[in-house]
Design a protein around this nucleic acid. Sequence first.
DNA 1: CTTGGTGCAAACATTTTGCAGCACA
DNA 2: TGTGCTGCAAAATGTTTGCACCAAG
Lengths: 155, 155
Amino acid sequence: MSSASNPGTTLRITEPLCAVFRRQLKAEGQKYTPERAQVLDAIIGLDGIFEAEQVIDELRRRRHRVSKATVYRTIHLMQEAGIIQRVLSEGDQAQYQLAYGQRPSDTLVRLDTREVIPIDVPELEALRERICRELGLRAQGHRLQIYAVAPEDAS
Amino acid sequence: MSSASNPGTTLRITEPLCAVFRRQLKAEGQKYTPERAQVLDAIIGLDGIFEAEQVIDELRRRRHRVSKATVYRTIHLMQEAGIIQRVLSEGDQAQYQLAYGQRPSDTLVRLDTREVIPIDVPELEALRERICRELGLRAQGHRLQIYAVAPEDAS
DNA sequence: CTTGGTGCAAACATTTTGCAGCACA
DNA sequence: TGTGCTGCAAAATGTTTGCACCAAG
């Protein structure tokens, strides 16, 4: 719903992520190793918001031997390369999302039941564009969390 | 700033938080100790979104001897009592906010400079009310984070 | 008095880092 | 072939827990 339809101006998604990563690494005199490719691939396979342990699990599932340390190190590199970005999270583990072409994640959290309900708030797209325009910036994504309870649970 | 003026309908803020806490504790057969009062007080003094270490620092500043363990335990109790709620956070530490009468925290994060800019998005109030109404829930707060970069930083 | 609370320090979970050997550009 | 990379295990956070003693109701 967010990408693919909007041609012209902001088109920057066509280049495969691995190419972006490779280029950014080279620019820093760093190497595009098989481990890093596997981590990137696992992350793409996870689609959406993920945390380090999910990446590690996904790699294990694929029978790729990449150490925990390398996963963490690669995640940092990908952040620097602008391929992923850290986002707000509620749990104890850091969460990230692919920086390009990702659906934003808007959720409603029920404080009484701890349920997390995905919601669709199309207005936010326009809202965030307007805010960014006013500040002279370009929007890259957003995240909204609404907290709510059942009406009778008036505390 | 928030209470005292608005009587009637949604009034639920007039009761001091310490009274709410005390009542909830008693209901569970638990005690309202000086340490817990000091923790609550420190949190109120912090106003807004806070993390455990800030509470510990604030207590130290006030020369109150409350152990780290007690601070964490009290934070959990306050969550159960509905006085504070855990919110999405970007760093490595858990963040909380007072559950009542708090301004929502909307921010714009510049991915290129890592700057965090508070923004005012009045539309969100209506938006979240509408969404909650549709779901038959009562809104308690929200948090929005917009990610953006400078336009020339087209990566 | 009694039950729950506190501080301390050790245990935990997640993430970071030092180091010796390894492999990509 | 050299510089950067990997895995391992130890260190560094942030948070939780076991235990002996203490205090609020």
